[in-house]
């Protein structure tokens, strides 16, 4: 391939024209905006550092205390379990929703309507008080059939279980809509190709459609996970000793409300940060095949940027022609 500067018929010019060295445009607006942001940051930083009522010493004292850490573990457990319930339930509900059987898709629709239509706080309170509705749960054949065994509801629905059920079942309704959107986003040709090869409806969904829907499903699911981490704090109303309730218990005794809320906030922020990083790598994994090359990880980008600071080797013209 010839260099792109060659004119038809003429020999390629041996010298390149001089590189352009223009005087850059001055962006006054940008400087102004930056100045305003800096001033605000300075005020905020100054206040954080000098307002004694933040009591950073107290924050430090309680940050790694065992009660706070225990609360954090409960919060993490609740987040993971509820999201797991939500995702599995979401996939099942989404597949049901797309079923040709109207009763099956109707059931899914009803579930989503019910659990999305009531506040999650109400659902938490309901599950907590479920024993008032069903004292024991019989397992056997309904409508007067023989009963095999029964579960004592009151002793099994601890605050943790109530919170887990409420959050997980509620999440299932939201995840169902996310998964459904993902499934719909996959081109119909994919389904037809799978069918024409003799694959069954379920094989087609699990092997062909869902893996490709993942690209659409993952980003909002990351969002949901981060949102769930914070929503778990609602279980403090049913006395589950999660992160928020743990610090509440501490400050109800020592009245250091603000520093202890700071402790909780910093922990929430840190976990959210870790989750965001995790989300990036999961997205990258499911992006394979979608674009020609995988996006770089931040580490790879750093390495490349460091390398590019060194003088570049001379480029070879026309080395990038794509042959078949």
């Amino acid at each position: 391939m010839e260099p792109a500067t060659a004119t038809p018929g003429a020999a390629p010019s041996p010298v390149r024209p001089d590189e352009i060295r223009a005087i850059p445009v001055r962006h006054r607006g940008r400087w102004l905006a930056a100045a305003i942001v800096l001033v605000f940051a300075a005020v905020l930083g100054h206040s954080l550092a000098t307002n004694p009522r933040f009591e950073w010493g107290i924050v430090r004292h309680f940050f790694l205390s065992s009660r706070v850490l225990d609360g954090l573990v409960v919060t993490l457990k609740l987040t993971v379990i509820s999201m797991a319930i939500g995702i599995v339930l979401g996939i099942v509900l989404a597949v049901m929703r797309l079923s040709p059987n109207p009763l099956v898709s109707g059931a899914s629709w009803l579930y989503i309507w019910l659990f999305r239509g009531t506040p999650v706080l109400v659902q938490i309170l309901l599950w907590y008080n479920i024993a008032a509705l069903y004292k024991s749960l019989p397992i056997g054949i309904p409508f007067g059939g023989p009963e095999l065994t029964h579960v004592n509801v009151a002793s099994h629905i601890t605050p943790f279980v109530a919170g887990m059920l409420a959050l997980g079942l509620n999440e299932g309704a939201y995840m169902a809509e996310i998964v459904r959107a993902g499934i719909i986003s996959v081109e119909e040709g994919q389904t037809e190709a799978a069918q024409s090869l003799g694959m069954t409806r379920l094989q087609t969904i699990y092997r062909i459609v869902l893996p490709q829907a993942m690209r659409v499903i993952i980003p909002p699911t990351g969002n949901e996970t981060i949102s769930m981490l914070k929503t778990t704090s609602l279980v403090s109303v049913i006395a589950t000793t999660d992160l928020l309730y743990s610090v509440q218990l501490i400050y109800s005794v020592n009245y250091r409300t603000i520093p202890l809320l700071m402790v909780a906030s910093i922990w929430y922020l840190m976990v959210t940060t870790v989750l965001s990083i995790g989300q990036y790598y999961v997205e990258r994994h499911f992006g394979r095949g979608a674009s020609r090359e995988l996006p770089e990880t931040p580490l790879q980008r750093l390495r490349r940027n460091l390398l590019s600071l060194r003088p570049k080797p001379v480029e070879v013209a026309g080395a990038s022609g794509e042959g078949r």
Binding site: E187, G189, Q190, E192, A193, S196, G289, A290
Partner: peptide, 13 residues
């Protein structure tokens, strides 16, 4: 029965 489509429809992943 094998089928080949206008838009290829290869499994993208």
């Amino acid at each position: 029965i094998g089928m080949v489509f206008q838009r290829f429809n290869l499994f993208g992943h």
